[in-house]
Design a protein around this nucleic acid. Structure first.
Lengths: 198, 198
DNA sequence: ACGATACGATACCGTCCAGTTTCGTAAGTC
DNA sequence: GACTTACGAAACTGGACGGTATCGTATCGT
């Protein structure tokens, strides 16, 4: 690293990076991956295509980076009541799936994950796995302090919470969403998770 | 209907219809909808493109018909044991999702349903809704004969069974599938569904 | 035999799109 | 001021694809 290292010419405009990523998410949200053109992204970002290709080598690389920016800060709820904790987590998950930024992206993102695409793998690692780990942690802690049966299969329990939520999102175009849905699901689950064995 | 109605020229070859539908499903299974070209379908079916367009007016119409052909006969299990009934239904659902014909189609089909596409709506009406109704029927019957609590929300119960199964399919590329998974889930669910109230 | 339609194959058209290049200009270093 | 890189805009290239048209052949009814 010499002193005069990398200081030639006009420096890159950091705000341009943000504008492009934002544009990718918007267009993705509106038309999906298949119908998203680089011209559309460039136009939305108010940027030349050359500027995009100066940063990413391909459309796919750009999308992967944009998706990775969806990572949300994960924060453990800290109530002493497992019921409200789970309801909070569920509401958060549903809010995330219906997020303005990611709302329409989510459906095809599910397809990407299920198909094992590059984009899908990156999304899974950046978003899904940390969030699942968080929910699992909450459940594990509740098992330790005796709020939940100690013989629960944590992985299965996480599936039992998140599965119906994702299904609800998938079927959204087909039916209305019950209010207080989160409470109903959590109560139904807890009836089994708190019960004495046998 | 005059006697000489519709009897001019060479009749259509019914086996060609089947070959095309089969080819659509295969190519769809291999490359997905976005990457499926009419040339690929025609080549796979051993058919000219004109022959395809003689039957369907567009790619989309063709795909919708092909998807509709996935409809499986739905049959109610008839055990007197709700546990084995549910396990059977679950195993059937998972087998369908991993079907050789529909295995790789399922992921993007989920995206189509969630996005409310034409294809998605047709698939939902042809496959998802009847299957959900079937599962709901089994649960309702078990409630009537006292095998399940009488105060269950049937729609929610169906979500609690099928949600985790679909989630498992989605996350398939990310983790192995536990053997006897169906039994574990059903047992976990029944612990709540059979419990006495409060 | 004749007219009509179906068939597979292939060429063709128009469009869309990822990625490249060019151009005039702006923003930095030396 | 000389040099270098970034920027927006626009033109361009090459390929892929949906859909149509054409051609020679096959299969039906009459």
């Amino acid at each position: 690293m010499t002193p005069t290292d990398r200081k030639l010419g006009r420096p890159r405009d950091a705000s341009v990076d943000a504008a492009i990523v934002q544009a990718v998410l918007e267009v993705l949200n509106e038309v999906g991956l298949g119908a998203m053109s680089m011209d559309a992204v460039a136009a939305r970002a108010g940027v030349g295509k050359a500027t995009i290709y100066r940063r990413w080598s391909s459309k796919e690389a750009m999308v992967i980076d944009a998706i990775a920016s969806l990572v949300a800060s994960v924060e453990v709820p800290v109530t002493d009541d497992i019921r409200t904790d789970l309801i909070t987590l569920l509401a958060r998950l549903r809010a995330f799936m219906n997020d303005a930024r990611g709302g329409s992206i989510f459906p095809w993102l599910v397809g990407e994950v299920a198909s094992g695409t590059d984009v899908g793998r990156h999304y899974a690692n950046a978003v899904i796995i940390p969030r699942r780990a968080l929910i699992g942690e909450v459940i594990r802690r509740a098992m330790e302090i005796g709020s939940l049966r100690p013989d629960l299969d944590v992985q299965l329990a996480v599936d039992m919470i998140t599965g119906p939520a994702i299904l609800l999102k998938i079927m959204q175009p087909l039916r209305g969403v019950d209010e207080r849905w989160e409470e109903k699901l959590v109560d139904a689950l807890l009836q089994g998770w708190q019960a004495k064995t046998g």
